[in-house]
Computed example of a mutant assay.
Amino acid sequence: MADKHLTDNLKGNYFSSERKDMKFLKGFTLIALLPLWAGYAFALYNGDNNNLSNCSLLILAFSLMNFNALCGVEKIENKALNLIAKMDGVLFFVWALVTVVQLLIK
């Protein structure tokens, strides 16, 4: 059993033995990113630095939890979640680029 798991990991099948509750968590966090992005945009529009910071930290945490799905390395079986993951990935990389540019300008 341990040898089979080790050979699967060496072949690159890291997510082949992913548990069902972890798949639910991945889907939940991908869907939760959408209202977080909306909250970030609303806080940015209102100039609320406290909510802007809180949303940024949550976006960063949820995006790092799903980094393989956001980058396109891992494909999710559900087409809607796969589309949400791609959209969240684009938003995340644009957000990261804008944040780096803002830090360099200041």
Rank of each mutant, 00 (worst) to 15 (best):
residue 67 F to W: 10
residue 51 N to H: 06
residue 85 A to D: 06
residue 61 A to V: 05
residue 100 V to E: 13
residue 102 Q to P: 01
residue 22 M to R: 09
residue 30 L to Y: 05
residue 1 M to Q: 11
residue 17 S to N: 10
residue 6 L to D: 09
residue 5 H to T: 07
residue 87 M to V: 12
residue 100 V to G: 05
residue 86 K to A: 05
residue 67 F to H: 06
residue 72 G to K: 01
residue 104 L to G: 07
residue 102 Q to E: 14
residue 44 L to F: 15
residue 69 A to V: 08
residue 38 A to C: 06
residue 83 L to K: 15
residue 97 L to R: 09
residue 75 K to L: 07
residue 27 G to N: 09
residue 23 K to W: 13
residue 86 K to W: 07
residue 51 N to P: 00
residue 19 R to P: 08
residue 37 W to G: 03
residue 22 M to F: 07
residue 73 V to S: 05
residue 6 L to W: 15
residue 24 F to A: 08
residue 91 L to G: 04
residue 88 D to F: 00
residue 84 I to P: 01
residue 70 L to C: 04
residue 48 D to R: 00
residue 47 G to S: 00
residue 22 M to H: 11
residue 11 K to E: 03
residue 81 L to S: 01
residue 71 C to M: 09
residue 32 A to F: 06
residue 34 L to Q: 15
residue 47 G to I: 05
residue 52 L to Q: 11
residue 40 Y to F: 13
residue 29 T to Y: 12
residue 79 K to D: 14
residue 28 F to P: 00
residue 11 K to S: 08
residue 105 I to G: 02
residue 79 K to P: 15
residue 49 N to S: 15
residue 79 K to H: 12
residue 58 L to K: 15
residue 62 F to K: 04
residue 23 K to F: 12
residue 41 A to I: 06
residue 64 L to A: 10
residue 71 C to H: 05
residue 89 G to D: 00
residue 16 S to P: 02
residue 19 R to K: 13
residue 69 A to Q: 15
residue 88 D to L: 04
residue 49 N to K: 15
residue 60 L to M: 06
residue 56 S to C: 02
residue 64 L to H: 07
residue 52 L to R: 14
residue 85 A to Q: 01
residue 24 F to P: 01
residue 61 A to N: 03
residue 100 V to C: 10
